[in-house]
Nucleic acid binder design. Structure first.
Length: 640
DNA sequence: ATAAATGCGATGATCACACC
DNA sequence: GGTGTGATCATCGCATTTAT
């Protein structure tokens, strides 16, 4: 990482210096003038002529002398390659997928588009995009690269996006909706009447502004998909293909979406030769995201390993694609890559592991959510002394984790008197901290986080160094490596009296051996789920949230929240005249998203509503500090 | 006359670099 | 190392031009 960055900086410095040196007197002035003139006015005069090529050759010499490895693109590279201006880009789909409700996600999964839910490609670098589309031979449907050919079939689409490849064609030969069909009229009503041409932007806006999860949402989603991943009309105006061809009774999974995308690729490149002639910027309406992913999935470039997964859209994101473009740009020529075959068996078996891991993570998330919820309810029970409704919520949560989800039913209040349940509930409650074994099968779901935390650490811990934080138990006193982190966390106990935040020291070790039995080989995963931090506000963090922050992974919100929690605690002991309060992501993010998604005219309203919500949540957080609650002298400072 | 293609300014995000 | 600033990039959408 560091070296990478360093390389970039070096290259940048070098390039710029060179730029100024080469162009010392006259051109330096031009450069300055350009600066003053504003951003868009790139000097046309300089651009013309073969200055560029000379420059680039010089640069090549220099980079040759420097470290030849990965460098970043510079101003001059821009001029060397034609760029592709995609009209059907992934942006809108990406934005939409980012904020889907659970219900909508479920719906998308049911349609067979589940692999797109965590779609990560928000932009497509234009220079590489041009190269890829330019390499596509639409007659044979192959990507012709310098070192080989990549055949493109409808099956390839399946491999890339993992979308349904059913029996029937999307474009039905008969019986499609007419443009005056009542449904299309209704669909059109979602948009302002004065809107002449509906773009993918409008479509994504409608999806984001509404919360319905019905047939209309299905159609909006499919329209958005077809017009961003397939092709759209000119100026990003949506094609109505999906709207006219997918009827109410159709099963979306039975449609051959792959062939539709494949055909889009085949037929969207007409008049290419004419289009690229003498132009720096070429407009393309076809499935650029798909073609790009085909190229990336079936090639490998030295200096950048990306493990292959199916569907391919899952292992590439905007940052990785951009990095890949930079590498290729700096080699002065695109396509200097090794062409790969279909995935090997070995690679495929790795996929299984990924699935296991994914499921494991989801379970962990649910458990962590559950614990937070329980703690929140407990906290509030303390405030609203023995509130019946809260108690019932507590029981509800307990019941959910007690029963398989398809058997779960909300119960009326009197039903809660059920004797057995009450007993179990109370037993469960008391075992909240100290585990109690349950012979019931469903109790596996109760896999309480605490239980896992209590698991004894075993010798099979691989990277003991970073994993030891909080994991060492009182009996593991000989575990020296663990001291460092533990001490760090204990510092706050030295500054002030008792801190609420604490490492999950196990209070009860009696049935540990028993647990280890059923934990068995699960021990390593158990450590991942180990709660390394929790506090009175229900913030908690599992080991896995912090132990594998590989490049390109995102920082999980619990990490930020825990940091906020620690800082808030520290603040109690600070000597400052004013105290700072760090706010948790949960208090900000939903509100910010709502504001972002609000219509411009509603924005004011949404913002002022958010202030109220914010105040309310703040109230809960600061319940013990009336002075703070007055919000006197409060400055809100945002750190992003 | 209409539809499609193209040009281009606006915008926001990101990068590189100078300066503190 | 952090921050401010200008350059560059990717995208959007409107206006204009060109093709049918």
């Amino acid at each position: 990482m560091k070296e990478d960055r360093k390389g970039k900086v070096n290259e940048g410095e070098l390039a710029d210096k060179e730029y100024l040196e080469v162009s010392e007197d006259e051109e330096k002035k031009t450069y300055k003038r350009k600066k003053v003139a504003g951003k868009r006015k790139v000097d046309k005069a300089q651009e013309a002529g073969d200055d560029d090529i000379q420059n680039s050759e010089e640069e090549e010499e220099r980079t040759g002398r420097e470290e030849p490895i990965e460098t970043n693109t510079t101003r001059k590279n821009t001029k060397m390659f034609q760029i592709l201006r995609g009209r059907a880009t992934a942006v809108k789909l990406y934005e939409t997928m980012k904020s889907l409700s659970t219900e909508r996600k479920k719906m998308i999964m049911e349609m067979g588009f589940g692999d797109l839910i965590y779609f990560q490609i928000g932009s497509i670098p234009t220079k590489l995009a041009f190269f890829v589309v330019n390499s596509l031979d639409t007659d044979t449907m192959t990507l012709n690269l310098p070192n080989g050919k990549i055949p493109i079939l409808p099956e390839t689409v399946k491999e890339i996006f993992g979308i349904p490849m059913g029996e029937t064609m999307l474009e039905r030969q008969r019986g499609e909706r007419r443009y005056d069909d009542p449904f299309i009229v209704q669909w059109r009503k979602q948009f302002p009447a004065n809107l002449k041409r509906i773009t993918t932007t409008n479509l994504s806006q409608v999806i984001l502004e509404t919360t319905n999860a019905d047939y209309m949402f299905k159609m909006n989603f499919l329209m958005l998909f077809a017009n961003t991943m397939g092709c759209c009309d000119n100026s990003s105006v949506v094609k109505y293909t999906v709207l006219t061809n997918v009827l109410e009774n159709d099963n979306v999974q039975d449609i051959d979406w792959c062939s539709y995308i494949w055909e889009s690729a085949k037929y969207s490149k007409s008049d290419w030769k004419k289009a690229i002639k003498d132009k720096k910027e070429v407009v393309y309406y076809g499935p650029i995201t798909f073609l790009m992913l085909v190229y990336l999935h079936y090639t490998r470039i030295a200096g950048m390993e990306v493990r292959r997964k199916v569907p391919a859209c899952k292992n590439w994101n905007s940052i990785l694609i951009k990095r890949r473009e930079n590498i290729e740009v700096n080699r002065k020529k695109f396509g200097q890559v090794e062409v790969l075959e279909e995935m090997s068996e070995e690679e495929e078996s790795n996929l299984k592991e990924e699935v296991y891991q994914m499921i494991q993570e989801r379970i962990d998330n649910i458990l962590s959510e559950k614990e937070i919820l329980e703690l929140t309810i407990d906290e509030n029970l303390k405030i609203f002394k023995d509130d019946e409704k809260l108690k019932n919520y507590k029981k509800t949560v307990w019941r959910i984790f007690k029963q398989p989800i398809d058997h779960f039913e909300y119960q009326s209040e009197e039903d809660y008197d059920d004797e057995d349940d009450i007993q179990n509930f109370e037993a469960g409650e008391s075992s909240h901290q100290q585990q109690k074994e349950d012979e019931d099968d469903n109790a596996e779901l109760e896999l309480k986080v605490t239980k896992i935390c209590e698991q004894e650490r075993t010798a099979e811990d691989k990277d003991a160094g970073n994993e030891n934080e909080g994991g060492n138990k009182s009996e593991n006193k000989d575990d020296n490596e663990a001291k460092g982190t533990k001490e760090a966390t204990n510092q706050k106990n030295e500054t002030g009296e008792s801190s609420h935040q604490h490492l999950k020291d196990d209070e009860d070790e009696q049935d540990k051996s028993e647990k280890n039995k059923d934990a068995g080989n699960d021990n390593e995963d158990g450590n991942k789920r180990e709660t390394v931090f929790s506090d009175k506000d229900g913030n908690m963090m599992m080991r896995m949230s912090i132990q594998s922050l590989a490049p390109s992974l995102e920082v999980e919100t619990p990490v930020i929240d825990v940091l906020a929690s620690i800082l808030n605690n520290e603040e109690q002991f600070s000597n400052r005249t004013f105290k700072r309060h760090y706010i948790h992501t949960g208090m900000m993010m939903p509100g910010l998203i709502e504001i972002k998604n609000a219509k411009p005219k509603d924005k004011e309203k949404v913002i002022s509503k958010q202030y109220d919500v914010f105040q309310e949540v703040l109230g809960i957080q600061m319940k013990q500090d009336c002075q703070q609650m007055q919000m006197e002298d409060v400055d809100l400072v945002y750190h992003l």
